[in-house]
Structure formats: C-alpha cells, structure tokens
Design a protein around this nucleic acid. Structure first.
Length: 295
DNA sequence: GGTAGACCTGGACGC
DNA sequence: GCGTCCAGGTCTACC
C-alpha cells in the first residue's frame, strides 16, 4: 500500500534524515545518500510493518509492506508526520537565519527539522543510550534492544521493531544489563519502561503539551538517567529549542569557533547562542561547523 | 551552587 | 594476548 503525505514547505527528506544520527539507529535504516528512509514499525494492533519513505512532490511517499485498514493507515500517517516533522513551520527561524552567514544555507537546504521516533519513549531510551559512551556504543546497545526484544516482521524475522515499554518492563535489570550491554544504564531504561507501563509517566502527551519549555524540561530531568544534555536533546525533538545539548563535541566546536581552542564550559556554549532566543538550539544544530568537523 | 568520584564499556596504547 | 588508561553524561555525596 502507498500513502502520500504533504509537507510544509520548504521540505527535503534527505535534510531530515541526515539531521543527526538517529536514522542510522535500528529500527531505522537509510540509503547512503539519505534519499530513502525505512523503518520497521509495530502498530497499535500489534501488526509489524515495514515503512519505506521517499521524497515526493511537496511531501513524501510511504510504501507499507502489508495491507492495512483505514485506521492503521491513519496511524502510519500520524507517525510519519511526527517522525519527519512534516507539519512544522520554520519560517520564523529562516527569517532570523537569513541575517547570519553561518546559517545562510539552512533555508535553501530546507534544514531545521530533526528526525525523531514515532514514540517519545523510544527517543528517551535512545538518548539515555547516547550518554557517556561512544556513538558505536550507542549503535550496539540500540541494536541489541531491537534484535533481542522487539517484534519481528512476518516476512523477515531478522528485522524487528523497537521494543514497547511493556516488552522492556517485563525484563529484569540483569537481563538488560547483560543482553544489551547497557551497563549502568540498564536500571534507568527499566525504571523508565516501568513508569510508562504503570501510567506514572505519560511521555507521549509531552509531544502536544503547551506547557512552558522550562516546565517541560523539569519533567524530563525528573527521569533517572536524563540530565541536562539529554533534556536539551529531547526538547529539540519536541520542537523546543531554548537549550543546547551541550556535550564534549559541542564544547569542542564552540571552543574552536570563539575561544581559540581553549577549554570551555557549558555556560560558554549556551551564551554563544543566547542571541538566538527560542531558536537557540536550532542555530547551534545547523550552524556551519563544516570546517571544524573535519578535524 | 559547585565539585569530585563512581558508574560501564570499548578502543587505544604499551608491553 | 594482556593490562592500563581514557573518554563519554549522570548521579550522589560532600563542602
């Protein structure tokens, strides 16, 4: 089955897919040029399908591996719209970016959308698995969770969906620690899954919350394993850009851009982008660091 | 409020 | 091949 979804212009699928490394984390997969994104997705009904997404006129075309009901197709449409931020209007950001040479390319390249998972739960787990480890470590941990605990595609059991909160909550810490090699992060992931399953934590409502960003940030910081970096990362995925996800890489970039390579603290990274106000995180994210990133 | 140390793993390095 | 060191955010205890 095929679905066509419109996007608020300007839009570029490859710009979203390459916005950060998420598209390389299972159960996402991307073509080398970023022009095709695929994903194994478990629907509410329990059916597991493959979604293959390509750019189309004014939006995207989604090929679904199975025959679905109207209700299931509507679910797929909602999920893809959220994943790719198809309905996001970034014209105010582009207006501000036109005044800055280091952001001059963003509008023409339709940059600004940040790829995200259909469920915030998955993004919180993945963000926890990016902390205090290398990127290859993150890939390995996510792959372990998906391959061992997610539901398989009916026609290719080697490919699986991201495990649901219930599936992870059913595990014990030791299993999670050893099977996924999550190390000390295992109790954080288990506690998160248990909180979601019990209803103590309703993550998905945060996606449409109109609470002030600081309040949203406080909620995220209450999750064990989510600190200031992770909270800023997750806020950006929620379309709130008032904080910068300051990690060692961000400090390195800002250090070389404005401090002659001298070590900088988080406060210097934040203050470097203070003038961007509500677009602070996006300005950092899409700043032209290309000449530094080659170091 | 700021800081030091522990947490866990994999990679780099020296032997 | 083995042992040691280091990098990567968050949490906790302490000042």
């Amino acid at each position: 089955m095929t679905l066509t979804l419109p996007a608020f212009p300007p839009f570029s699928l490859s710009a979203v897919v390459t916005s950060h490394g998420w598209a390389r984390l299972s159960p996402f997969a991307m073509s080398e040029d970023g022009r095709q994104l695929s994903r194994v997705e478990r629907l509410h009904s329990g059916q597991v399908v493959e979604l293959v997404i390509q750019e189309a006129d004014h939006g995207v075309k989604v090929e679904v591996s199975d025959q679905l009901s109207d209700r299931e197709m509507a679910e797929v449409a909602d999920k893809v719209t959220w994943m790719l931020g198809l309905d996001q209007d970034l014209s105010a950001f582009y207006a501000a970016a036109r005044q800055e040479s280091k952001l001059a390319q963003v509008e023409a390249r339709a940059q600004g959308r940040i790829i995200r998972s259909p469920m915030l739960f998955e993004d919180v787990v993945k963000t926890i698995l990016t902390t205090n480890t290398s990127w290859t470590g993150t890939i390995r941990m996510v792959e372990a969770l998906v391959s061992q605990f997610g539901d398989p595609l009916s026609f290719d059991r080697s490919r699986r969906a991201f495990p649901t909160p219930s599936q992870l909550a059913a595990l014990d810490v030791q299993r999670l620690r050893l099977a996924g090699r999550l190390g000390y992060r295992a109790p954080y992931v288990l506690e998160l899954a248990l909180a979601v399953v019990s209803g103590d934590l309703d993550l998905e409502t945060l996606k449409t919350s109109d609470e002030p960003t600081d309040q949203l940030r406080s909620r995220l910081l209450q999750i064990n394993g989510v600190g200031v970096y992770s909270a800023a990362n997750l806020l950006a995925m929620l379309g709130r850009y008032e904080y910068i996800p300051v990690d060692s890489w961000a400090r390195k970039l800002v250090s070389h851009e404005w401090h002659s390579g001298e070590p900088v603290r988080s406060v210097e990274v934040e203050s470097a982008f203070e003038r961007w106000g509500k677009w602070k995180g996006l300005a950092y994210w899409f700043w032209d660091w290309s000449y530094l990133a080659q170091d």
